[in-house]
Write a protein that binds this DNA or RNA. Sequence first.
DNA 1: CTGAAAGCGCTTACAG
DNA 2: CTGAAAGCGCTTACAG
Lengths: 364, 364
Amino acid sequence: MTPPPRVTITQVAAEAGVSTATAGRVLGGYGYASSEVATRVEAAARKLGYKPNTLARGLVTGRSQTIGVVAADIDNAFYARVLRGIGDVARPRGFGVILTNSDENLEREREAVQLLLEKRVDGLIISPCDVQGPEHLRSLIAGGIPTVQVDRAAYDLAADSVTVDNRGAAREAIAHLLETGHKRIGIIAELEQTESASLEDFVAQAPYSPVAAETLYPSWQRLLGYLDAHRDAGVPVQTRLIRRAGAYSSEAARSEAIRLLEYGHRPTAVFAADGTMAHGLMQAIASLKLKVPDQLSVVCFDDLEWMTFMQPAITAIHQPVHRIGSLAAELLLARIAGEASVPKHNVLEARLNKRDSVGPPPRM
Amino acid sequence: MTPPPRVTITQVAAEAGVSTATAGRVLGGYGYASSEVATRVEAAARKLGYKPNTLARGLVTGRSQTIGVVAADIDNAFYARVLRGIGDVARPRGFGVILTNSDENLEREREAVQLLLEKRVDGLIISPCDVQGPEHLRSLIAGGIPTVQVDRAAYDLAADSVTVDNRGAAREAIAHLLETGHKRIGIIAELEQTESASLEDFVAQAPYSPVAAETLYPSWQRLLGYLDAHRDAGVPVQTRLIRRAGAYSSEAARSEAIRLLEYGHRPTAVFAADGTMAHGLMQAIASLKLKVPDQLSVVCFDDLEWMTFMQPAITAIHQPVHRIGSLAAELLLARIAGEASVPKHNVLEARLNKRDSVGPPPRM
DNA sequence: CTGAAAGCGCTTACAG
DNA sequence: CTGAAAGCGCTTACAG
């Protein structure tokens, strides 16, 4: 089991009877070479089974042709799709993708970034787990590493981002419910991270203050859209109908949903702010034996892409998840190629799938 | 926007007033150094913000501390989980993970392996898309690159593999249905790749010939378990009840399911060989307005982990998907560390979740 | 168009 | 325990 020695450019050069510099020029595709020499070198390379050592190349060029990705949780269909989008762009451009996971943990995120830096990635795509004060990200940017954020954008960070118009899509969905005649619309959202204000303050103030929505966590953005739609329609918001799971957990969502639905004056529609919340909600609906949409209309933000798949009775908002990844990769590669411009927040539209109808509110 | 020059070990050495060799010894954690010198070097490194260049290290040591993964389709929850398992093992051991996708396409797979080799991964984990004659994999192994296969094992390849006992789990599931009284049990399976024999020949011969099950594609293995259980129970197999979708597509599964269920003498139970088949089946069931499990019992191999999640009325077989990834990574790292042993096919057990009951066959 | 030389940032024997 | 020297496999100016 002796690991056969890898063939180097020196051996190829010797075999072809040229210098390593010349061999490098034809094999690496840089500089000039007569076609006669080129064919000889190529033949030698093929004969010996030469494969370039990109580590050595990277050492001298300073570019590794590799991008790093810090996903929050690969195990989540959302990130899996983002990753697919990234890979689809990186592959044809000859870039490798190094994958890491932060699990929404700041310490992990730091380690991940550190690992990627040591591997000398040319740039990185990250879902920052702290949108408030990511010091290590700030020093990353200061260090000149091209960086693109996905899914969320850290406040005041001079880096591109690709996010979804969570606020707009939620607003559209709730507006649709209001137009259909619903007046009591519940919302179940993660709302884990505490923003500066309490939930109550947020509800009271947010719709009237110019919040920089793209630097809020997605679930807060979606709540904002919910509030927007109510304000637009002149329908007062009932705090009782806003349920905060406090964790990205369907179990937590389920108990909040039960609390919401057992309430005497039950809502006629519920908006689940993400796929996990929707899952908890559907469990609650099943255990209470409610019929959708006859007794209750359901709309959800379908980031996991399960709902429409498995539950045709509910209306979902689709995100262009693959596009989040591919656009992020395109932006990153442009930066790496040196195309400088001011960092930009790119907001993609999410689409409300109206084909699956929302039912009218049931008579009481 | 001038990319600030990275600090090298030479600068750290100068700052600490030692040679680069010594600086390397303390920073790299190899060789001896007096504690006095060590602290001085560490202080200098911290002061300058030194980060080792692992490309340079890899060039000289010949090890990149990186493993390559060729997934069939990252966008599939199964591979996402496998990846998570791999990452969970690789991270604490300081290994990076480079991810590629084959999309079940041989040409893509070749390119992916090529890319990983050029990045000088220390080993790789792959879901071979061709279990028959993977020449490029054979030469990979011959080249001495530690390799572990997951989900399937190519025939006659001298490499470790981690797979699931598809045959045993399917057999157990079908046996459970037979014990509950079902006599007509349908099966919907992908069965895309043509094995040596035709489907009919396979059905006729397989249970009686000593097939090397681990080198069949998963869906064929599952069909084998279906046949096993019938033979064990002395229940004759009806070819009519075996439906081959011919593609990993829920659309194809749906039409086969409709054909199966509209059949005059309808089966009383159906086994879906994977999550996608189950999805197509559930759509067919919905459009035919059949009640599960009252009119039809359903068991599925739940590789996508959706079914149990979304459809409590069906019984699912769970695979230890995370474990597939973590075990593969453990094996690979052991190989990389030089722990030689004969390549082994590791078969993990899949568990039939019986808590969700299978109904008895309906009276006709 | 081609080659000799230097160097990318580390680690590895080898002296001392 | 520490340092000077060589070298990993490439690419990059610089001559010719």
